[in-house]
Design a binder for these strands. Structure first.
Length: 585
RNA sequence: GCCCCUGUAGCUCAGUCAGGAUAGAGCAACGGCUUUCUAAUCCGUAGCGCGCAGGUUCGAAUCCUGCCGGGGGCGCCA
C-alpha cells in the first residue's frame, strides 16, 4: 500500500511540517545517522510541541531534558519561533514567529491550490461506490456508499491522483428472470410509468409476490434467467430496458444529491460475466483451486467456519454457476490489468468485510495483485433512527433515499424562509437545496465511517454545532463582507496577523493540506469535516473580535485577506465533501 | 463456538492509525454581551477520567491480555 507520503505531498506552507523537516536532519545526526521522527504535534500549550527528545534520549541513554535543552540551544529553529522552551520531562513548546506565519499565509493566499501540492507520484485509484440494484429502490445504505465514495473521489483527485469511478450496480443474477417476466406481463408502457417514475419498490415487490405465489411464473422466470445467460437477443433487449429505466432513475437521484457519478462510471455485475470463465481458468492454472462438496473453491489461509475447519471462497457452485466471489475476482483482474489500478477502494458496508478479505487474499495468492497494488475495504456502519435501530419509515420499511432528500430540502427551505425572508423564491430554492443536501451529506461524512450513526433532522439542520449549515453560514457571512467591500471599493491587502484571533485563524488556514493528508491517509472524510468545523469556529471568533469593514487601512486589508482565504478554504473543503457553499443564506 | 467492528460528559460525537504534560467539541442546563460586517453568532460556568480488570512504559483513552455490553459475519444469494 502506498504510504501517506506518496498519496499526499508534504505541504511547504505548514509550519508543523516545516519544523519537522528542519529538525529531522539535526536529530538524525545526533542519533548517529539513524532516521528520527521529531514527533511534532499541535499543542494547546503553544503552537506546537516537539516530543521527539523523550524517545531519542531513551535510545541514546541520556537525560531527556538535557537533550531537549540541547535542541533548543542549537539555534536550529530560532528563525521560525518567537518562543521556544523546554517543559516537563523534555517536551519542547514552540511558538511560531508571526513573521513566518505572515510569510506562509501570504504564500497560501496567492496559491489557487491553498497550499496543496500535486502528488509527485500519481497513483491510479479505482473507487468502487454507490452500487444500487437495478429495479430496486435506493435507500440509506446506498446514501452512505455514494456520499463517502464521492468525497473520496474528490479528495484523491485534489491530491493529484488519477481517479476512476466504478459504479458496480446490481444488474445481473437470478432475480432478473422474474423482473423481465414481470416487465412482459405489465407491458413496457405500464412498466415504464412505474419504474421511470421511481416506483422501483412497487415493481420489485409485485414481481417477487408473483414469484412466490405462482408456480407458472416461477417456471417462466427460471427459463428467462437461462435465456438471459445464454445471450438470447430478445431477452437482452428487455433486460436493457430494465437497466436503462433504473439507471435513468439513479441519475435523477445522483443529480439531486450532487455527486459526480455519470453513465460512463457504470460498471455493473453484468460487465464481468464474460471475464468469469477465464478467471476460473487462471485459478485452475494457478493450482490454488480445489473441489469441495461438488463446488470449485479456494481455501485462503486464516479463514475458518463454524466448526473451525478451513473456510472456502466458492468460485463455482455445484450447479456450475458463478457467484459474487467469482465476479469480484474478475473485477480485481479487470481493475489491475485493464485500468492499471495502484489502489482500489471498495466503499461497501461493514458486513462484507470477511468476503472482501477472502477475495483480496485469493487475488494476492493468484498473483493478480502484485506488490505495489493494494485493495482497501472502506467499510461503513449503519444509519440508525432515534431508537438506535436501523432507520425505518413509520410503516416499518426502509426509507427511500429520494424521500429523505426531498424532506431535507423542505426542512431547509422552511428554515431559510424563517431566517432570511428577504430572499426571492428562486434564491430560497437554490439555498435550500444546498443546505438540505449538504446537511444530509455532512451528517453522514462527519462521523467516523465505521461506526453507526444516528440520523436526526434537528441536529443535522441545526445552524450551530458540527453541521453543514454552520460551515455554510460562516462562508456566507464572509461573502456578505465582500459584497459590502465591493460597494465601498476596498480590496484585500497583505496579511499581517496581530490579534490572537487572527493568529489562531491563520494557523488553522495553514493546516489545510495536512488535514487533507490525514483524511486521505485513513480514507476518513470525517477528519476533513473536523478540520473545517474548527476553521469555521475560529473564523466566527475572529469575526466577533476583529471588525473587518470598521477597521481601516492595512488592518482592514489584512483582515479582508484573511476572510478571503478562509472563504476559499471553506468552499474548497466543502467541495471535497461534495457540499456547496452558498453566497448568502 | 470462532472471527470482525464498537463501548469516551445527560445526549450526539472528536481524540485510538504514529502512547506524552491537568481528556476535547457541539447540543441540552445555567450566567453574560446586542440600536450586528446576517445573533443561524460570540464570551463564560458547571459536567466525563475514557465498559471492567490486569499488564507493558518515565508516561496509556491510545499498545498487549482476559472478561462484560451492543452490532455484524461464519459454504454454494449478492
Amino acid at each position: 500500500m502506498p504510504n501517506e507520503r506518496t498519496l499526499v505531498e508534504t505541504p511547504l506552507t505548514d509550519p508543523i511540517a516545516l519544523l519537522s523537516a528542519r529538525l529531522a536532519p539535526w536529530l538524525s545526526q545526533r542519533a548517529g545517522g539513524e532516521v528520527v521522527d521529531p514527533v511534532v504535534r499541535p499543542s494547546d500549550r503553544a503552537d506546537a510541541q516537539i516530543n521527539g527528545a523523550l524517545p531519542l534520549a531513551k535510545q541514546l541513554g541520556c537525560n531527556p531534558r538535557d537533550l531537549a535543552t540541547e535542541i533548543v540551544e542549537s539555534g536550529e529553529l530560532a528563525d521560525m519561533c518567537s518562543a521556544i522552551e523546554v517543559a516537563g520531562p523534555g517536551f519542547i513548546n514552540v511558538t511560531f514567529s508571526n513573521d513566518m506565519i505572515n510569510t506562509l499565509l501570504t504564500e497560501v493566499a496567492n496559491d489557487e491550490r491553498l497550499g496543496l501540492r500535486q502528488a509527485s507520484e500519481t497513483q491510479t485509484v479505482v473507487i468502487d461506490y454507490s452500487a444500487p440494484n437495478v429495479a430496486k429502490e435506493m435507500h440509506v445504505g446506498h446514501l452512505r456508499s455514494t456520499v463517502i465514495g464521492d468525497a473520496l473521489v474528490r479528495m484523491y483527485t485534489a491530491a493529484g491522483h488519477r481517479v476512476i469511478r466504478e459504479n458496480h450496480i446490481g444488474d445481473w443474477g437470478r432475480p432478473f428472470g422474474m423482473l423481465i417476466e414481470h416487465l412482459l406481463d405489465l407491458g413496457e408502457e405500464v412498466a415504464a410509468s412505474g419504474l421511470g417514475q421511481g416506483d422501483l419498490d412497487g415493481f420489485y415487490k409485485a414481481a417477487n409476490a408473483k414469484f412466490n405465489e405462482s408456480a407458472e411464473f416461477q417456471d417462466r422466470s427460471r427459463q428467462r434467467v437461462v435465456l438471459l445467460q445464454s445471450g438470447d437477443a430478445e431477452t437482452h433487449v428487455l433486460w436493457n430496458r430494465l437497466v436503462a429505466m433504473s439507471t435513468e432513475y439513479f441519475n435523477t437521484v445522483y443529480r439531486q444529491l450532487g455527486v459526480l457519478l455519470v453513465d460512463d462510471d457504470l460498471m455493473g455485475e453484468s460487465r464481468y460475466q464474460p471475464l468469469m470463465p477465464s478467471t476460473l481458468e487462471r485459478l485452475e492454472g494457478s493450482g490454488l483451486m480445489s473441489e469441495s462438496d461438488g463446488a470449485k473453491v479456494v481455501f485462503p489461509p486464516g479463514f475458518t467456519n463454524r466448526d473451525g475447519d478451513p473456510l472456502p471462497l466458492i468460485v463455482q457452485a455445484r450447479t456450475g454457476g458463478f457467484n459474487y466471489a467469482t465476479s469480484d475476482l474478475a473485477c480485481v483482474i479487470d481493475r489491475v490489468e485493464r485500468l492499471n489500478a495502484d489502489l482500489m477502494l471498495y466503499v461497501i458496508g461493514a458486513p462484507q468485510q470477511q468476503h472482501l478479505e477472502m477475495v483480496f487474499a485469493v487475488a494476492k495468492m493468484a498473483g493478480w495483485m502484485p506488490d505495489g497494488v493494494s485493495a482497501v475495504h472502506v467499510a461503513f456502519g449503519n444509519v440508525l433512527g432515534d431508537d438506535k435501530k436501523m432507520l425505518r419509515s413509520r410503516s416499518g420499511e426502509s426509507v427511500k433515499l429520494v424521500d429523505l432528500l426531498s424532506e431535507a430540502i423542505d426542512r431547509a427551505s422552511a428554515a431559510v424562509e424563517e431566517k432570511n425572508p428577504g430572499l426571492s423564491d428562486a434564491e430560497r430554492a437554490a439555498v435550500a437545496q444546498m443546505i438540505g443536501i449538504g446537511a444530509v451529506k455532512y451528517a453522514d461524512l462527519s462521523t467516523d465511517r465505521v461506526r453507526d450513526y444516528v440520523f436526526n433532522w434537528d441536529r443535522m439542520l441545526a445552524f450551530d454545532g458540527n453541521t453543514s449549515p454552520y460551515l455554510q453560514y460562516a462562508h456566507a457571512r464572509i461573502r456578505s463582507i465582500f459584497r459590502r467591500a465591493a460597494e465601498e471599493q476596498v480590496s484585500v491587502g497583505s496579511i499581517v496577523v496581530e490579534e490572537p484571533a487572527e493568529r489562531a485563524l491563520g494557523l488553522q488556514l495553514l493546516a489545510y493540506p495536512a488535514a487533507l493528508a490525514d483524511a486521505i491517509g485513513s480514507n476518513a472524510p470525517h477528519r476533513l469535516c473536523t478540520y473545517l468545523f474548527e476553521l469555521a469556529q475560529l473564523f466566527t471568533t475572529f469575526y466577533e473580535h476583529c471588525a473587518v469593514m470598521k477597521s481601516e487601512g492595512d488592518i482592514r486589508g489584512s483582515r479582508l485577506a484573511l476572510c478571503d482565504l478562509t472563504a476559499r478554504t471553506l468552499s474548497a473543503g466543502l467541495e471535497l465533501l461534495g457540499i456547496e457553499a452558498p453566497e448568502q443564506m
